[in-house]
């Protein structure tokens, strides 16, 4: 049983936001529009956070792509009163849209801000509905529940079926989430953290490796490699 994890190399990241867009396409995340965007109602399973500090010519700019961290000790799962958010057997923090009561305790408890409440029903303008990803786990969510990054679980399933058809086991690199596949700087890596030889576990052992807000004991399964 793999334990899925992701590595994001901030030194290779170009802040292009391709991950953000690819994620929204792949996972049928609806468009919020101007009003809802400025009112804080837009949903980003993956988001690039800008951090620009300093003044004059002494500025430091940093851009942090932020998917769900899929913590080993997820605070969101701990606080969910109905078990609508849960950690699946492969370490992915998932959301059961049919069970969620919309109390938003998990959104409050997530230190990373990776969970989004869908304040309104998803809408697709006319012909825009045509491009919706038909894969079942990516179907648009009903209004009033919390949604989040799934590590593109539908792609994991697809990879499994493909591999099964080929009559072999999953190998490193078989599963590629949308954000990883599109990343132009090749800054994102995905794989099995329990497999010592996988690319992600090798990178996770890098001296540049860092897990955000590690002191909270959440043990994120998304590991960042620092710049410089």
């Amino acid at each position: 049983m793999p334990r899925w994890g992701m590595v994001i190399d901030l030194d290779k990241c170009t802040a292009c936001q391709s991950c953000t867009v690819a994620c929204r396409v792949e996972n049928n995340v609806p468009i919020a529009g101007q009003r809802d965007s400025s009112n804080g109602r837009a949903i980003f399973w993956n988001e690039v956070i800008p951090v620009i500090e300093g003044d004059g010519t002494h500025l430091k700019g940093r851009f942090i792509p932020r998917p769900c961290m899929h913590c080993e000790n997820p605070p969101c799962v701990q606080v969910c009163p109905v078990g609508a958010t849960f950690k699946d057997a492969e370490g992915i923090v998932r959301q059961d849209y049919q069970r969620c009561i919309g109390c938003r305790y998990c959104t409050v408890a997530c230190p990373y801000g990776a969970r989004y409440f869908n304040w309104r029903a998803p809408e697709f303008a006319e012909s825009h509905a045509s491009y919706r990803n038909p894969d079942a786990p990516a179907r648009p969510r009903p209004v009033g529940v919390v949604e989040k990054c799934t590590f593109c679980v539908q792609r994991i399933e697809r990879a499994r079926r493909r591999v099964a058809a080929e009559g072999r086991e999953l190998r490193d690199g078989d599963v590629v989430p949308a954000c990883v596949q599109t990343c132009p700087g090749r800054a994102r890596f995905f794989g099995d953290l329990d497999d010592k030889h996988s690319q992600v576990s090798r990178l996770a052992r890098s001296p540049r490796a860092l897990r955000f807000l590690e002191d909270l004991g959440t043990r994120p399964q998304v590991i960042y490699l620092m710049e410089g």
Binding site: C80, P81, F117
Partner: peptide, 20 residues
Amino acid sequence: LGRPERFFHLLLYGRMSSPL
């Protein structure tokens, strides 16, 4: 609640780990 009609989930699926 975002889905008030599901309040009974609290009774059906209540998780003791949640302070709620």
